[in-house]
Design a protein around this nucleic acid. Structure first.
Lengths: 104, 104
DNA sequence: AGGTTGAATAAGTCTATGCTTATGTATTGA
DNA sequence: TCAATACATAAGCATAGACTTATTCAACCT
């Protein structure tokens, strides 16, 4: 199930860190490892999980494989969240308010 | 970390099912079990994880403990998601569009 | 072709986690 | 006060998952 893949993927702090790094800018697997104390196979495995969850997507560029955020995964979360919007505090029930809040 | 608790809590399909059930209406632990083929201790443990993640909250009512959705957890996810809104497809970048979409 | 580099896969290990059974704790009511 | 009911906790087990080392695959370069 897609939901399952997504939440399981995000359940790991290392994977969230990888995702966050990619959100700041696409890069290849080696670049992602810099400053992260993680082995090459571990990174590869994490990227595989994120890819299955549609949180990232890849594109081979010669010897390198470039990774970037895949909007599809985020969309799935947005939809999951929207199901429960009746429980959102009124302060953020209108996302425009939230976005303004975040922008500051 | 709060984010960690939330995503780990939601990584389990049984817990998401429990959460969804509570979103449809508050109820006590026994009521939650109905139709769910889950032991009493397992339910209690799941509820404990959801509570730690601030996804549900409880209130003792005599012998029963009533559970309900805690908006705080959802708010945390909304904020997490908002960080990556630049990647949302333009179709749902404005939540008003999304909510209309979901309402139908 | 052969060596080098970037990345994926295989196989094994160790820990986290979701379950179980058993027991403990609260609250109610006879 | 004692039994029954609702729930929580303890302890143990079995599987999932995050790592490791070793190897393979793929693209580049000389």
């Amino acid at each position: 199930m897609a939901e399952n893949d997504i939440f399981r993927a995000l359940a790991d702090p290392t994977r969230r860190a990888i995702f966050e790094k990619l959100a700041a800018g696409s890069m290849n697997a080696s670049a992602l490892r810099r400053g992260m104390e993680i082995s090459q196979p571990a990174m590869s495995q994490h990227l595989s999980v994120l890819r299955d969850a549609k949180l990232v997507r890849q594109e081979r560029q010669g010897r390198f494989v470039n990774y970037e955020v895949d909007p599809e995964g985020l969309t799935l979360i947005v939809h999951w969240l929207a199901k429960y919007r009746t429980f959102w505090p009124t302060r953020i029930a209108d996302l425009k308010v939230l976005l303004k809040e975040i922008d500051q």
